[in-house]
Design a protein around this nucleic acid. Structure first.
Length: 267
DNA sequence: AACAAAGCCAACCGCATTCGA
DNA sequence: GTCGAATGCGGTTGGCTTTGT
């Protein structure tokens, strides 16, 4: 189960920890704390590197560490957090008391990744359907609304009917971002979304209602220059009524510098 | 029963970031 | 501002266990 390597040329032991070593490390930290990982092994009487001691403590010996199987709730939470944060194991671990980042990473790689992959395939199908619906809506909208003049920072109504080469399929719309002036929107156009702060505490973050109100505000006629262009081309419902729109919003939040829509993709 | 393949997970490694001199 | 040490993080490895043939 564990690596069992001999000591290296510096006399630093590697591989599996013995009960005696565990006890030494636990006793030392409980008495003195881990004030300096590099010096700790020497003072604790261990022939280990500071790194190794830290890892052993963080992943296994910490008093609050859980050692049993993961619960369904924990699995669900990992899946959810991973969908939001990606491979930010330490960030995910901070939301699961008693589980180390290493344990969560192992759990993901051995159990949850395949589940997520299966879910992803379902989501891809949903995105495809949603994108097609959005494209239909856009086409209908184009027929009943005059084209927006090209004076704004972004060309939402689109003067070109061509599809960007970077997003050749509608199923990839959620991750398709155009660069350049053809459809980029500067930060000051949609401040409410870009001023969204990264998750500090997932459970206290605003949910749908709060974000919807932000979009309401974004679309308000009193907002800064460029909003009228957005308001003419997007409606709140179009932005938030399906998975596709949510993934767009997620990407907006993730990329805090520049809002690049792929509106042209569906023109 | 014996062997092989897959599953699992503790521990290692290297890189990035932070901090203090 | 620069440099080196300490620390933290994510990817990978290696070996034990379980399952399948």
């Amino acid at each position: 189960m564990v690596k069992n390597l001999g000591p290296d040329k510096n006399g630093i032991k590697k591989g599996a920890w013995s009960d005696e070593e565990d006890e030494k490390l636990r006793a030392y930290i409980q008495r003195y704390g881990h004030w300096n990982w590099s010096l700790l092994p020497k003072f604790a009487g261990l022939s280990r590197s500071g790194k190794s001691c830290r890892l052993r403590w963080v992943n296994y010996l910490r008093p609050d560490m859980k050692h049993g199987n993961f619960t369904k709730e924990e699995d669900d939470l990992i899946l959810h957090l991973h969908s939001m944060l990606g491979n930010k194991w330490s960030a995910i671990a901070s939301k699961l008391p008693g589980r180390s980042d290493n344990k969560i990473k192992n759990r993901w790689n051995t159990h949850l990744k395949k589940h997520a992959k299966a879910d992803h395939n379902v989501q891809e199908s949903k995105h495809h359907a949603a994108a097609m619906q959005l494209a239909d809506q856009a086409n209908q909208k184009k027929q009943i609304e005059p084209k927006v003049q090209n004076g704004g920072k972004m060309n939402l109504a689109g003067t070109s009917s061509s599809v960007s080469p970077s997003c050749s399929t509608l199923t990839k719309l959620s991750s398709c971002w155009l660069s350049g002036a053809d459809c980029g929107v500067s930060r000051n156009v949609v401040p409410q979304i870009f001023d969204y702060q990264p998750l500090e505490d997932f459970w206290t973050e605003p949910f749908l209602e709060d974000i919807t109100s932000s979009v309401d505000s974004m679309l308000s006629p009193s907002n800064a220059v460029g909003h009228d262009l957005i308001a003419q081309s997007f409606s709140k419902d179009m932005m938030l009524n399906d998975e596709f729109s949510w993934s767009m919003l997620d990407s907006c939040i993730e990329d805090n510098n520049e809002f690049m829509c792929c509106w042209d993709c569906i023109q």
